[in-house]
Simulated scan of single mutants.
Amino acid sequence: MQLTPTLLAEATRRGLLSTEQGQALWDFLAEQEREQQHDTPSFKAAHILYYLGGLIAIGAMTLFMTIGWEQFGGTGLLLISLVYGTAALLLTEYLFERKHLALPAGLTAVLAVVMVPLAVYGAQHAIGLWSDGDARHTAYRDFHYYIDWRWLVMEFATLAAGAVALWRYRLPFLVLPVAVTLWYMSMDLTPLLLGGDNLGFFSDLGKLISLWFGVAMTLLAFWVDLRSRHTKDFAFWLYIFGVLTFWGALSSMDSGSEWGKLAYCAINLLMIAIGAALSRRVFAVFGGLGIAGYLGHLSYTVFKDSLMFPLALTAIGLAVVAIGIYWQRHEAAIGRSLRRILPAPMRELVEQRRG
């Protein structure tokens, strides 16, 4: 039930609250709602403009940086990154401390953090660690496209900068560069750990490493979710890249048999259940894609000549809808029964996400 001025006035009339208490409570709730709407990402025009502009600026210095910037040399790239990073930090301080605009401050803080790998690359290039005569890719833009263990110094520096920025500003969007960097590290560590330059993400061992790295990042996201359940959503980007890394590696693996493909479908069903329990759509989205892929495999390979398969699949779909109707009618009782078996912190997290 939503609290309205009418309900608050009725509570005051019945003597549950004094007039002063009712007004003070309403003012407090109104202020909290304004702050939440102001700082919580949504599809408001202002928020869309924030993210559009911020992501364009971030992308310009990362994914979309052209090879022409190499002409500045290592020292030039180092100076440029320091100027950009300093300007972004000053703008962050202004937006965060003076204007109290958390969303744009988070975007400019991320812009400062993503200048760190460029600064490290420039410094390394200046002292000759990325020589022009190296046959392997050495342009900074390759950092975002190719797997290479030599990027690890840049990634460790970025993680350190991201941790400092998170400590300073406590803004959830700053988890994004940390999550992306961890994802990069999961791929760049593969050739270092396996002892070769040709062992990347798409090798069998590379996929296995990526899968378990995704599991670890998802578990980290769950731990962060529990720790921050009463504050801001710091786990969002960790969930995104944890599930993406895990599901991408799992989906690219060769299951070897129909039983393996059935197990893949079961894992995707479990992901949907986890998404429903934690109110995290990322699990449901990738789980749904996995199930759709498995059903496509059955349709085009296993039962390609069957007349009954579409009918059976329709019946299964309608049965799932019927289960959904039953669940909706008895959701409160089922939810209470299930939540009673959960530890207290997890029960609080689920109840808060449901709210």
Rank of each mutant, 00 (worst) to 15 (best):
73 G>N: 04
323 I>N: 05
197 D>Q: 14
315 A>K: 05
304 K>S: 05
51 Y>A: 11
194 L>H: 13
65 M>C: 10
142 D>I: 02
8 L>P: 01
297 H>P: 04
284 A>V: 00
216 A>E: 05
128 G>H: 13
155 E>F: 08
116 V>C: 11
299 S>M: 00
232 K>T: 03
161 A>I: 06
212 W>S: 04
147 I>F: 15
329 R>D: 13
313 L>N: 02
19 T>E: 14
293 G>A: 11
34 R>L: 00
338 L>T: 08
189 L>Y: 05
28 F>T: 05
222 F>E: 04
188 D>P: 06
247 W>V: 08
214 G>T: 07
144 H>K: 10
317 G>P: 01
288 G>Y: 01
18 S>V: 02
243 V>F: 09
341 I>Y: 11
241 F>S: 09
117 P>H: 08
309 F>V: 08
271 M>C: 02
350 V>W: 09
35 E>H: 12
141 R>P: 05
178 V>I: 06
151 W>F: 12
146 Y>F: 08
269 L>F: 03
200 G>I: 11
325 I>K: 03
290 G>D: 01
231 T>N: 06
22 G>R: 03
326 Y>I: 14
78 L>P: 12
30 A>M: 06
57 A>V: 15
227 R>S: 07
265 C>F: 02
66 T>A: 10
329 R>P: 10
331 E>A: 15
6 T>D: 14
317 G>K: 13
144 H>T: 05
214 G>C: 10
214 G>I: 04
175 V>L: 06
119 A>W: 00
235 A>Y: 04
157 A>T: 12
219 L>K: 00
54 G>C: 00
148 D>C: 10
198 N>D: 15
115 M>N: 07
55 L>C: 13
24 A>H: 13
12 T>F: 02
302 V>N: 04
37 Q>S: 13
95 L>N: 09
208 L>I: 11
68 G>T: 14
75 T>L: 15
171 L>D: 10
78 L>T: 13
91 L>Q: 02
207 K>M: 14
258 E>A: 08
199 L>N: 09
58 I>K: 07
250 L>F: 03
294 Y>N: 01
261 K>Q: 11
2 Q>A: 12
232 K>W: 00
138 T>E: 14
296 G>R: 07
119 A>V: 12
219 L>P: 00
39 D>F: 02
301 T>M: 01
4 T>E: 14
134 D>E: 15
173 F>N: 10
267 I>H: 00
49 L>M: 08
30 A>W: 01
316 I>Y: 06
40 T>I: 09
286 F>M: 02
36 Q>F: 02
276 A>P: 03
326 Y>S: 11
343 P>T: 06
110 V>E: 02
108 T>N: 06
266 A>L: 03
106 G>D: 04
265 C>M: 11
310 P>F: 14
236 F>A: 08
84 Y>S: 03
221 A>P: 06
322 A>K: 12
205 L>P: 12
11 A>L: 08
143 F>W: 09
189 L>N: 09
69 W>L: 10
147 I>G: 12
268 N>E: 00
220 L>Q: 01
233 D>I: 05
241 F>H: 10
203 S>R: 11
184 Y>C: 07
75 T>V: 15
81 S>F: 04
199 L>A: 08
337 S>P: 04
37 Q>F: 11
70 E>I: 01
43 F>V: 01
